[in-house]
């Protein structure tokens, strides 16, 4: 069971401000979806290794060599606000 309080908590973890009517609807949606997902509980997975991804890769290294990278302005130009070579954001503390 997922409550409206849980949904509000998860929304704050996910950094989404939900309107009141959205909270009600999402609670119902998530409850239905989670109820379906609970069918996994009928499976015994003790001793089964998890699969994070399918390739037999561990760490992939590349040569520690200098390569061309994007210019600072190229990277900054898509931001809403920038100043002196930095991304600019609203005040962090009031």
């Amino acid at each position: 069971m997922i409550s409206e309080k849980d949904v509000k908590h998860v929304a704050s973890l996910a950094r989404i401000h939900l309107k009141d009517q959205e909270i009600g609807r999402l609670t119902k949606d998530l409850e239905k979806i989670l109820d379906y997902i609970h069918k996994l509980n009928t499976l015994d997975v003790s001793g089964v290794q998890p699969t994070g991804h399918v390739l037999p890769l561990k760490n992939v290294y590349r040569k520690d060599a200098v390569r061309p990278s994007l210019a600072q302005q190229e990277v900054l130009k898509m931001s809403v606000e920038q100043q002196d070579g930095f991304f600019k954001v609203p005040k962090v503390i009031e």
Binding site: I2, D6, V7, V10, A11, L13, A14, R15, I16, H17, L18, K19, E22, L26, D29, L30, I33, L34
Partner: peptide, 21 residues
């Protein structure tokens, strides 16, 4: 909070919520 509320549609929010949960 506001950017993500306005910027994402209902299905994307639903999935972010499910995944975060």
């Amino acid at each position: 909070d506001e950017t993500r509320d306005i910027g994402f549609g209902p299905e994307v929010k639903r999935r972010i919520m499910l995944g975060t949960y």
